[in-house]
Structure formats: C-alpha cells, structure tokens
Design a protein around this nucleic acid. Structure first.
Lengths: 456, 456
DNA sequence: GGGTATTTGTCCGTATGTATG
DNA sequence: TCATACATACGGACAAATACC
C-alpha cells in the first residue's frame, strides 16, 4: 500500500516513484512483478500517465525491467551495496580560527564578489548548452584566453597573444606547472629577499636550490643576482613583496639583459596589479622583453575571488610546445565560460575600476587613522601603492609582547621580519579585507595593544 | 533532422515550425505521418508544448492535418511554388576534427550531463551566499568530502572518513599531488602491462623509473611484482585497463600482504567503477586494506562530466599530515558546492543508476550487433563488464589496412597492441560515447571496413 | 488446444499550472 | 503584463502478450 497525498506539493508521480522505490528496496525480491499501470492508477485514483512516469523513472534508474505487454519486474541490479550498518565515523570538522581583525594585505572585502551578476551570466552560459561531455582545451578555453590576453595587452602592457596564455588553477598550480616544464633545465631559483614565501616554498618542495637575493630601494640587487649564477629568478617587479618597491625602468632593462646574456628565465609575478590605484600604473616587465625570457604570472584570486581558482601563465612562445602532452585542462568549464563572458561584457573592467577606487579611499583612510592613533611612535616604512601600509616603531618596542597581545585579542598581524642587509622589521598593515567603515575600529583596536608595547 | 539552436533569439517553436515546414515542402509526401509530439520533444530536447505549438501553427496554415489520438499527417495542399528562396542563412558548423564514430571506451554520451538539474542546484547554492572572498579548505569543501566518503563507503566498500578525502582537479592532478607527496620516498613505480598509459606518462614525466609488470588472467603478476623490488604500484583492480580482468580476492589479499611486508604503497585507480553494470559490483581493494597501504583514486570526469574537473584521492591516515602546508584548494568553490548538493539530494545515486542501466543496454546491443555483423570472422576477447568489447579476428587479417581505412572513413578505433607474454592484439570496441540508437549504425560502418581487411 | 476476451506496456494528443524574464 | 518553456496530469488508441473458455 503506497501513501499518496493528493494535496501534497510533491507531484504525484514523484510520490509514487519514491513509494515504489522504497517497496522494491525493502520488501520486494528480484523478479517480482509490479502491479500494472492501470491497476495502480485505478487503486490510487491516479491517471495512467502519472503511474507511467513513475515507472519509467524507475526503469531508467534500473530498479525494474519492462517486458512489453506483460508487466514490470524487479531487476537483479538492486544489490545492497556495501553499506555498513553503523553510520560513518564522521570526524569533527577542523575548527577554523576566526579573527576579530585580520590585517592581511591580500584579502578581499567580504561581499565584494559580484554574486548576482555571476549568477546571471552563469545562467546564460549554461543555457548555451555547450558540450560538457568531452574533454576540452588543455590550455583553457580559447575564448577566455583571448579575453585575458586582451586585458593584459591593454591594461598591463603585456606582449602576448591568446595562444601564450595557459589557464591554471591558482598561483601554486601555476608554479607547479612551470616547475614541471623547467625541471629538466633548472634546479636553482633566485628569489628576492625578503620575498614571497609561498613562491619559495613551492620551489623548495620541488627540491630547488634557493638563492636569496637582497632587495634594495630599486628592487632586487642585480649584482648579487649575477653572482648567484642562477638561471631562473622569481620577482615581483611592480610592487615588490613585501617591501613595496618598484624596479625602475633602467634596472628592468638590465634585468632583461642579464636574462638574455645568461640564457636565464624571469618569472614575473604581477600579483597585486589589479588592486592598486596609482594614477599611472606600472606596466609589466614582460612588455619590455623582446627575446622571450619572461614568464608572466597572474591570478583572479585576489581581485575577483580566490574561490574561483583561476590564474594564468603567459609563457614565451619557445616554451609553448612543452605544454602539450599529458597536461589537461585545469579549471571547471562552467567557471571558465562564465568568466569569459564576464570579461567579454565589460564587467571585469568595471569591477576593477570599482575596487581600485575603493582601495584608494581605504588607503587614505588607513593612513589617516594610523597617523592619528599611533602618531609619533610610528614611522611609515613604505608609502607606495599596494594594499598595506608598512609601519615600524620609532621608539623602543617590545615585539614579543605585541605578538602575544595580538593573539589574546584575536587580531591577526603580519610581520615583515626577514632581514636583508640591515635589520628590517615592519608590520604590514593590510586593509584589503576591511570594509571602509571597519578600518577605524580595526586601527583603534590595534592601537590599544600597540601602545602597551612601547617601552618607556 | 531539424536544426534547432537553443541560443537563438528566435523562439523554439518558431524555429521548429520553420524546419518542419521546410521538411514538408522539400522531402515529405502527401499523407506522410509526422513524428509524434513526444518523440520530437525527446529527440531535440524540447518541451512537448513547444513542439505542439509548432504543429498547431502548421495545422492552422494547412500544412498538416490532425487525426486526434492518431497523429499528424501531411495534407495535399502544399503547393511547392509559393515558397520563396528566403535567406538560407544556415550557419556553418565549426569543423572540429570530429570523427564519424569514435569507439573510445570512456567517452560520455553527449547530453548525458544533467544540465537543467545542475543549473537549478547551482542557483540554489549561489543564493545561499557563501563566503566567496576568503580562501577555503585546501583539501576541498568539507561537505563535499563527506558526500564523497558516504558514497565510497556505501557503494564501493571503501574504508574511509571525510578527512581522508582530498578533492583534486582531474586524474592527472591527483597523480601530481601524489607524486609531490611521495617523491622523497619513492623513485620507482610498478605498473600493469598492458596498462593505463596516462598514469605511466605522469610518473615518467616526474622522472620515475617504470617497471612494467605483466598482467595475467588474475591481474598483475604478483611474483614478478615482488621480483621488481618496486615499493609503489599503480593498478586498476576492478577492471584492469585495458584487458578488463578482475583481481580475485585471493590475489588481493596477497597484494596487500606484499605491500605490508615491503612497506610498499598501492595506488588503486577505480576509474570505471561508476559506469559498470554488473549485478554484483566488485568492492574496492582499499576496503580490504587494514594497514593503510592503499591510496584510492577516483573521478567524476567519466561518470558526470570531464568539464567539471573534479577527482579525488583517499589517502591513508598516516599520509595525511604531509598534505597540509603549501597545498591549496583546487576546485572552484561553486562547482564543489553544487556537486555537494547534487550528491546530498540523491541526484548522484539516481544519475549513476541511470547510466548503469543505459550501459547495460548498450553493452547487450553492441554485442548483438557485433555478432550479427562480424559473425564468425571475429572472436570476443573479453566479455566482462566495462565499456568496451574487445575483439580480435579469427581469420587472416590486415591490421594496417584497417588503420588506413578507418582514417579514411573518419572512424576512430582503439587498439590494445601491447604485448604481455604472448602476442596480444585486440580492438577495443567501446560504446560509452554512443547513444543507444547510434550503436547499430556505428557497428555497420565499422563492419564495412572490417570485412575489407579480411585476407582470403 | 485453438480461438477469443482481457490485460498490459506503449504511444499519443490535450489541458492546465508554474517559473522565468 | 505577457510570451515562452517546461512540468504536471489526464484519458484515448493500439498491438502484443496472456488468460480463459
């Protein structure tokens, strides 16, 4: 006896389908005959179509077989699987630690992702019924690569075409791919010091030897780079991480010279180019490269959403062939197509303009608040663009106490501790993750613990 | 065959109306019966209403007559001369290097991806406004990992919990991650021969030494595996690729013994487990493992869509810590969340049941067609599950000619050429990518060239 | 045991409700 | 508000399998 509720919101054929499925799983044996469509329709006062459609769903899912003009019979494929009687020993989800304020520089403001828009575009994309059943271009969808190339040429002065773009799946994936390409020719990486730790770690994990090259006020020390004899260097020329310095044009040319003479390669990470708000943004180093020694690395994680998992490489043409072979597309096709359309319809440009304006406002506010609250006890170490203001104390200061107090107050601070040449210790007061209206409160909270650490 | 463009701004019923009108004028005779509304709706994936409305317009304009409960028939008033040669703007389809028939085993039937459903669930997910602005769990979303664990436990007999699952971004990415983990402890991989070339290539690319171990009728040769002294082996125990053999329980236990004694690891690739249709599927090797020597590899590419880029690893607990650190989430959050919900609401189970049922049907049809068309000139090499029937000629046969003819007819054939022990050459007649109604035509076309290659 | 009435799956046309933009 | 597209629900027509006389 099936329970069918005519007043339920659940359609009749679905109700019936579920009831019969239950019956098959619990009470019926292989080969048992189901009641005929007409019989069920009569008994439960349903139309034949409803019953028919319930049966046909069960048929499609393999619960029953149909023998035309004869009846429906329970199939032999309803194995009880391997279900253990006990429920899964679900271990507790690891508790994510949450902070009151996190001064990390490369955070995105909550709700900055254009959800509504993304939804609309996604729906358009999915209605276009692309072929989701075959494998796709290993470098990423051509249309998306084209949009990225257009953007890079126009906004970053990069010199490339769509075929040089490879869509990856986040910064680390980009680096991983690169390493796969290079590891037959390179085993040593030169990297700025202080520099981006995550890049160093990826290469270290792949057993690269790391040569730390100091960073001066004109960026990486070229003489020491030359002396290191490395043939591969990772740099952040537009805004050095974490110092924020920019390599001037003269040094850029020297760097390219170095690469050409030594048959070396330069990995240019343009990590925060989308976020800065200079009136005259610095074009990419790659655009100056005439001989194909620069590999350009970019990402949408910091400007759009880290949850999308889209980044890209721009590789010199001579390296292109190496990417064919076992490599495969890395990013969900829906996401690629949606981003392609997002860019193509101009939303990307609009989005960037929006966050740039916002970041400029936030930078000014952050600076004002810091100066007001910390006043003469602090000096600002770097002033350039970027999403953080680096400060250090002008007075005797107890760094250890600061760390402890910050933990106690659940304020996450970020230090630039590495030493390059002389001692270099600063706090990176990032504002990327704060909303405009949060900044004052955040600085206030920080100011309280800061002042406690000043040694009289 | 009507051309219906779902993207077009022209309403579907209008498009259909025009197409049918064209058909009536050019190809149909008075009294010919049109296909039923339901049939057309199914074939072109339209709603019955759209078709009905096209038909009713044709009815109104006198192209067809309706005989209720019986069908629509072409009337005798279709004067051919009033038709204007209006703009024949049928767009050219992009010419992909497409095959007439591709007998690859692991293809998905076109349109098998549940687009509508996916769209609906995606919209639900995006309306929940998750936090898209922070970085997420590096192993993959917890909820999704839980769903995968539930599925693996119940349907594959895998012994795991959600924390052992790591969401990756396709088979090669899974392997890449694994290699990163292992390369400090392993440099040699044992692999079945013949075996899955893509797995071998990934390891080769990472400079692994490869030991090819022959496959017998009980799967990988255990004695030779032992003699190889490898400490890492890649196998496909449920359906060996490409021979289709299954490792029996006795050998599975021996394999696990070997791993335990030699402190070795087993990579179990369960690549086609979702697709097969045996009444009693073979549980995973991993489920027998009591000491944590098995790494289980699975994917959604073959059962749902390769465009999603979702695969997963199940790693033994002792390896888990190694995965923290620089690794980062690999799959678009939207996609993860959508899949999580897709599984949670039971659609995954239903989807699997459907494709299994379909595959069973297709297997039977394929076998029947092959036997009918090739008859005594062929013998079936393997009969087990899987998505291909392996055949080889029983008569003198010109393999070279077959290859050439296949190219000429744009039929893509797949060979199992590798020799293991004795000569072993077979054609893998895969049916995964065909729709049910295509199989007969595909085999017919193949049969034509097959017979030309028989040497009298 | 052979013809006939009934049952049965399947295909069909139609009407109405509902979500979407 | 309106058109479009789809989901839900109804009952008729048909041919083959089955049961019955």
């Amino acid at each position: 006896m099936y329970l069918i509720d005519k007043n339920s919101k659940i359609p009749l054929h679905i109700q019936l389908y579920k009831e019969i499925k239950k019956e098959i799983i619990h009470n019926l044996k292989v080969g048992d005959k189901l009641q005929s469509i007409r019989k069920v329709a009569t008994i439960y006062n349903l139309s034949k179509t409803s019953v028919e459609s319930a049966y046909s769903q069960l048929l499609a899912e393999g619960y029953i077989d149909s023998y035309p003009k004869s009846g429906y019979f329970v199939t032999d494929t309803n194995y009880k699987n391997f279900k253990k009687d006990s429920n899964i020993d679900i271990e507790k989800k690891e508790q994510k630690d949450d902070f009151l304020y996190d001064f990390f520089h490369a955070r995105l403001e909550k709700d900055s992702f254009p959800l509504k828009l993304w939804k609309r575009i996604f729906n358009k994309v999915i209605d276009e019924s692309i072929d989701f059943c075959t494998y796709h271009d290993a470098k990423g969808e051509y249309g998306l690569r084209l949009e990225i190339a257009k953007y890079l040429i126009e906004s970053r002065g990069v010199n490339c075409n769509a075929n040089q773009i490879i869509v990856c799946n986040g910064f680390i994936n980009s680096m991983g791919l690169l390493i796969k390409l290079l590891n037959k020719k390179h085993d040593t990486l030169a990297i700025e010091h202080p520099g981006y730790y995550a890049a160093r770690e990826v290469f270290e994990l792949s057993n690269y030897k790391i040569k730390k090259i100091p960073v001066g006020k004109n960026g990486i020390d070229l003489r020491k780079l030359e002396k290191s004899e490395a043939k591969l260097v990772y740099i952040t020329p537009s805004h050095q991480f974490p110092t924020g310095v920019t390599i001037p044009i003269s040094n850029r040319l020297k760097l390219l010279d170095w690469a050409e003479k030594n048959d070396a390669l330069i990995i240019e990470d343009d990590y925060d180019s989308e976020l800065t708000y200079e009136t005259r943004p610095i074009p990419a180093l790659q655009g100056l490269d005439r001989v194909g020694r620069v590999i350009y690395v970019g990402t949408f994680s910091k400007s759009l959403s880290p949850a999308l998992r889209i980044s890209y490489l721009v590789v010199p043409k001579f390296l292109l062939e190496e990417f064919s072979g076992v490599f495969e597309s890395r990013v969900c096709l829906f996401t690629q197509k949606t981003l392609e359309r997002f860019m193509n319809e101009g939303h990307w440009d609009r989005h960037l303009r929006k966050i740039r304006t916002l970041n400029k406002k936030k930078y000014n506010l952050m600076k004002k608040c810091l100066e007001e609250k910390l006043g003469s006890s602090m000096k600002i170490v770097n002033q350039g663009g970027g999403l953080a203001i680096h400060i250090s104390p002008k007075v005797s200061f107890d760094w250890n106490k600061l760390e402890k107090l910050a933990i106690k107050k659940t304020i996450k601070l970020h230090y630039a501790k590495e030493k390059s040449g002389g001692e270099w210790q600063a706090l990176m007061m990032g504002f990327g993750g704060f909303k405009e209206e949060e900044i004052e409160d955040a600085v206030n909270s920080f100011s309280e613990i800061w002042h406690e650490c000043i040694i009289e």
